[in-house]
Write a protein that binds this DNA or RNA. Structure first.
Lengths: 89, 89
DNA sequence: TAAAAATGTAAAATATACTTGACATTTTGG
DNA sequence: CCAAAATGTCAAGTATATTTTACATTTTTA
C-alpha cells in the first residue's frame, strides 16, 4: 500500500500543526442580535453562564459538541461562528 | 431592551441542550483515502498517534482547534467530517 | 436616583482531551 | 512463513473545558 509519494505528502503538510489557531467568535454579536442575555443563552445551550462568558471572552474554546449546539442554535456553521486565525497559539 | 417575546423564544428553544449529540466521524475513511497511516496523520496534525486512535474510535471528541486542523487538512468542513447524531449522551 | 437586571471576576472542584511509554495483536510484504 | 509495519490497549500524568459558589461592577429601567 505505502509508497514514496505518501511520505512526501505527509512531510509537505507538517506545518498544519498547533502553531496556528487563535480563536475568536461571533457569539456575543449573534446572542445580542437575538436579544438574549448570557443567562438565557446558557440555559438554551445547557451550560452555565460562566461558560458563555468564558467563550464569548475567548478565555477558552468551546468543546466540539458545544460548538455544534451553538451552531445549530444560531442556524449557522461552526466555521462561520468560530474564527480560526492562522497565527501563533 | 428585553421584552416578553424574548423569554418565549428562550423557553421554546430549551431542548437544544446536552441530551443530543452522539459523535462519529469520517476520519479513518478520509485518512485511508489519502493512503496515510495513523502515525503519519498524527504527525501532520501535531498530535500523538493515541489521539488519532481515540478520535477515530470515538473514545472521545477532538477539541475544536483540532477539529479545525483536521477539517483544513482534509479540505472539508468540520460539520461534514464529524457527525452529530440527535440521540442521547 | 435607587433598585433590579445583566455582566464581569476569581477560586476550587470535576470532567474530558491529550500525552507518554510500554506492550499486545493484526495486517502487510518479502 | 517470518519479519516488519500498522493498529490496538492500558495506565498514569498533564492540560484544558465546564461547573459551582460567591461577590463586584456596569447597565437598564421604574
Amino acid at each position: 500500500m505505502g509508497d514514496g509519494v505518501i511520505i512526501e505528502n505527509v512531510k509537505h503538510v507538517l506545518h498544519f500543526g498547533k502553531e496556528a489557531v487563535k480563536l475568536k467568535n461571533r457569539i456575543r454579536e449573534l446572542r445580542r442580535a437575538m436579544g438574549l442575555t448570557q443567562d438565557e443563552l446558557a440555559g438554551a445551550l445547557s451550560v452555565t453562564r460562566q461558560t458563555v462568558i468564558a467563550i464569548e471572552k475567548g478565555t477558552y474554546c468551546a468543546s466540539l459538541p458545544l460548538a455544534h449546539r451553538i451552531a445549530v442554535f444560531f442556524g449557522e456553521s461552526i466555521e462561520s461562528i468560530f474564527i480560526f486565525d492562522e497565527e501563533d497559539q
